[in-house]
């Protein structure tokens, strides 16, 4: 499918990168192998400026109001929110588990930090995900190079600052390769946060 190129409009503030919103929802009856995962993620739209972002975002349901097993993803245009994507395959993610009720606020804050280029790690950031689950919600930020410790530490420190996380917040880094191995061992499940 050819998509129209998205560019900032007149008088708008351009973003460093274009970003695409995705939505996915797990069908409980189906095992989430790569094919079904890919069928379940939907591109919603791409933004190129701060104003386009707000216009789009303001019309979205807040993640905290989503039900069931669903995810919002905001990734740089051209990167699919899947482990298998070229930009993600050597990468990993920081994971923060959130108690219920916090997802909407943390989601907005992590997006603003990404769009505003607050992480200062060059081209390393791929995107962010908020995963709505039954007991707790999960926020994650994906980067390209899992074994680059300078980058991953800087992302962690920036997250603590921009999300204003209490010092005792547990943050876990997972490489996509490990996620893939771990999940496929049990279920053949090998895509995003499942």
């Amino acid at each position: 499918i050819r998509r129209k190129t998205v560019t900032p409009g007149a008088g708008e503030h351009p973003l460093q990168y274009n970003y695409t919103f995705w939505y996915s929802r797990r069908t409980p009856s189906r095992p989430a192998n790569t094919q079904s995962y890919e069928q379940n993620i939907r591109q919603m739209g791409t933004v190129a400026s701060v104003e386009q972002f707000w216009k789009f975002y303001s019309h979205l349901v807040r993640p905290g109001d989503l039900t069931g097993h669903s995810d919002f993803h905001l990734f740089k245009e051209g990167i699919k929110p899947m482990w298998e994507d070229e930009a993600n395959k050597n990468g990993g993610k920081w994971i923060i588990r959130l108690r219920k009720g916090l997802a909407s606020r943390f989601w907005e804050n992590i997006i603003l930090a990404m769009l505003g280029e607050q992480f200062m790690v060059g081209e390393e950031i791929c995107g962010v995900v908020v995963s709505i689950r039954f007991q707790e919600d999960i926020l994650s930020i994906w980067n390209k190079t899992a074994n680059d410790q300078v980058t991953t530490s800087r992302i962690r420190d920036t997250l603590r600052r921009v999300l204003n996380l209490p010092p005792n917040t547990i943050m876990e880094y997972k490489t996509h390769n490990d996620s893939l191995k771990y999940m496929s061992q049990f279920t053949g499940d090998n895509s995003s946060f499942r």
């Binding site: 409009g9 008088g11 503030h13 973003l15 104003e51 707000w54 769009l115 505003g116 607050q118």
Partner: peptide, 21 residues
């Protein structure tokens, strides 16, 4: 090249611009 950096306050202020609504 130059990097386009925006702080949180600036981004939030843009939310109220007529173009963003």
């Amino acid at each position: 090249g130059t990097r386009i950096i925006y702080d949180r306050k600036f981004l939030l202020d843009c939310r109220n611009s007529p173009i963003a609504r």
